[in-house]
Design a protein around this nucleic acid. Structure first.
Lengths: 367, 367
DNA sequence: CCAGTTAAGCAACGCTGTTGTCTAAGTGCA
DNA sequence: TGCACTTAGACAACAGCGTTGCTTAACTGG
């Protein structure tokens, strides 16, 4: 399942239906004011009749509802279709060195409940923190309205880790957590509720999903990236892509926690420790330029505690660096922005790990 | 079409059939000794009956043929199915500063005809070189056996360029070629035969396609990469991904032809100009390590004139660098190898640009 | 008030892969 | 040599997908 490439698998009618259904749900989610059958037909390229059948199936579930009539465009007015926000919920968890966040989002991704815990990976033993978090998750679950379905729990955590198996690999240099099976431990505490684990950077990237190619850069205790290539999360062979901070920017530079010398992360954190955020921003910008050279993305999105504390210098530095290295704006223009998800982006995106399959981003069979 | 993401498009029965058909063709191509219906059913996850129907359709074309019986596995022996190499051909062209290569490959990718022209981008005006190349292509086309179909021409050229529109953007710093519409110019000379244009690095990457994630690094007059993510070429938003050589490795380093300072390419070419191939190899290796950190690929493949001249130092340097930066071999191991396509890899891969759609790598609708 | 326009449903259809059954062509043991 | 067994593959009937052709619903505009 996970890790197995969908590109090498045949597809049958069920897969075809699931693909189109997920596509329709995705389009409805992207339209907060709702959409209509005609609009869906145009967007998907399917015939209006096919859309009518798909919508009829969805209306029979709790996922979609009709919402009155839209304005007429010269004839019969369109029937508004909307995703039912209360039909499904997911819990998102951010696990940091000294802090954890637990929140509940509905099907549209809106936050409905949120608590911050003042304890993190560096403060507790694995079993104790898991129990602490599980308690908060159970509290969040109790706030789910009647009729709403809790679909699962997503956890965003410092890497490196193995997303496919849900196992940590010495996150943030903490040996106590090395090889800890966080996913199964949490699932056991929660009576088998589906749990998904991913790097904090990947989670936060999911929270700013958009069409095309996006690189999300996260600066906090460390520096990492989440890559949304063609709208879906790229995790790489060992689900450990995005180690943006461990690109070497200075040969034989100062040692980094990863063992190498001259990593962007080491340089950047050293500058920040010295209070020189201008240099940190410039270094981040050079790394971002390197990334755009390699991946030619549409969009750079910035986030993480350090950036949120004072976004201006980082946004300006990256924008300037890209303008410098890609002078032909008419042909190559990469936009630079702050993450729209805000400081809770990791936890919000973690919940997205659970919701995404519904909307087809991670479904195998047909991409 | 190109540039438009397939992820946002609905799929119908035609798309379903095309997807499965291309998958079967791809599997047959990957099995030089042929395959059987049973094996195809196992590999695709489709039922034996579905495979029988798909194979029957393919046998009715010239693409696939039966090839006798295989060994028995305890019952009726399997019927061997094989791709008919002579059913289709493609021309591949490599366009370099001072040299061009034109070759013909069959459906399996085997080279059937090859000529090298001692003139390149720097030697001729665009119109003259196009005419020269077109003559060689016509010669190659005459070597196609009767009954064989010439599917088109693929061209691999120094970037930057716009793959979607087939237009060059000042390749190799040659102003005479800036904005030259190479694809349409060549197509006009060849009576509308389909022509595809891509960066030399992308073409060469296609020539070493394999399952999983591969990064092909090409060192010749310049230094670039071709990215095969999940088996298919990743081109990025403006089809200009893979500018691996323009990652900055030394802040405020020596100026590069791209306008920036301290680019890997500038450092590497300077070392080579000084005859210091050890330093060039070490620099390439550091860049490769940065790439693996960001993309977590399964495989690094090396190619290009400079590497082929003496591959040992480059293979060793990259292998050592990766062992250094990813010490946990059991979990993270990226293999390093020379391109199996050899020195003509760019031209062979350029032909692949034409053949790939047949095998579903670039088909829209269903991925 | 009625022609025109747009939205959406109903019914019949073609085509996909699936299921169930049968035949072909081998192996292996008595 | 003969017969039970195994495996490969075909034939026919089928369920389910989106498509086509047509009808009905509901609004706009002169």
């Amino acid at each position: 399942m996970a890790g197995m490439s969908a590109a090498h698998v045949g597809t049958n009618l069920t897969g075809l239906r699931d693909h189109n259904t997920a596509l329709v749900l995705r389009l409805l989610r992207a339209a907060p004011d709702g959409s209509s059958r005609v609009q869906l037909a145009e967007a998907t390229g399917l015939t209006p009749q096919a859309i009518s059948k798909i919508v009829a199936r969805l209306l029979a579930t709790t996922l979609v509802e009709e919402g009155g009539r839209g304005a007429s465009t010269g004839g019969k007015p369109r029937t508004v279709l909307r995703l039912r926000a209360d039909a499904g919920f997911a819990v998102g968890v951010e696990l940091d060195r000294r802090e954890a966040t637990v929140l509940l989002v509905d099907l549209t991704g809106a936050v409905r409940h949120q608590v911050v815990i003042g304890r993190g990976l560096a403060d507790e033993l694995p079993r104790d923190l898991v129990e602490l978090i599980a308690n908060r998750i159970r509290e969040a679950a109790r706030t789910v309205p009647v009729g709403g379905d809790l679909l699962g729990v997503g956890v965003g955590c410092r890497g490196p880790l193995d997303h496919a198996n849900g196992v940590l690999h010495r996150p943030a240099g903490l040996p106590a957590w090395d090889n800890f099976p966080l996913r199964s431990a949490l699932a056991a505490e929660l009576d088998g509720l589906p749990v998904r684990l991913d790097k904090d950077t990947n989670a936060a990237a999911l929270a700013c999903a958009a069409p095309g190619h996006t690189a999300y850069l996260h600066l906090a205790d460390g520096l990492g990236a989440g890559l949304l290539l063609d709208g879906s999360l790229y995790r790489g062979a060992r689900t450990n892509a995005g180690e943006f901070g461990h690109q070497i920017l200075q040969l034989d530079g100062p040692p980094c926690s990863c063992g190498a010398r001259g990593c962007l992360e080491a340089l950047c954190l050293a500058a920040l420790a010295a209070g020189d955020s201008a240099t940190a921003a410039r270094l981040l910008a050079v790394g971002a330029g390197n990334l755009v050279q390699l991946l030619d993305v549409d969009r750079i999105v910035l986030g993480g505690r350090t950036v949120h504390a004072d976004p201006g210098p980082y946004l300006r530095a990256v924008t300037a660096e890209l303008a410098d290295r890609f002078p032909d704006r008419s042909w190559q223009h990469t936009s630079v922005q702050l993450t729209p998800a805000g400081p809770a982006g990791v936890a919000i995106g973690a919940a997205e790990l659970v919701l995404a399959p519904l909307f087809g981003r991670a479904v195998t069979g047909v991409a």
